[in-house]
Amino acid sequence: MSVDLNMNVLIVDDYKTMLRIIRNLLKQLGFQNIEEASDGSQALKMLKSGKYGLVISDWNMEPMTGLQLLREVRNDENLKKLPFIMVTAESKSENVIAAKEAGVSNYIVKPFNAETLKGKLVSVLGEF
């Protein structure tokens, strides 16, 4: 089954420039509906009030970090199966392990390229 490119994708980052870059790369891959949040708490509100097929989140944000958001998502009965990709500059093993234990679907370290992003999307969502 191919990926529904019309699904709502939520990208979460406190750097507007980074949101713009990820949005543009996703558009190039064919995704049509991309929404943005600037931290975990705003993202959580959006996730609870809308229908999303994927979250791509930074880690280091205030007041709610990406890891906190991930834990909230996994603890929510309606959201717990939502694909969640962390895109972050945090590249220590302890970070990757903490994210994996919290239930991250995949992990991209910044700076990344379009091929890496596409590869992770395929591994999480399937071919498209």
Binding site: N60, T65, Q68, A89, S91, K92, N95, A98, K110
Partner: peptide, 18 residues
């Protein structure tokens, strides 16, 4: 923030995991 101890930011080349 509860995970402040995990926030290290970008690592130097050679130290960072690729």
């Amino acid at each position: 923030r509860p995970d402040a101890d995990l926030l290290n930011g970008p690592q130097q080349e050679g130290t960072a995991k690729n």
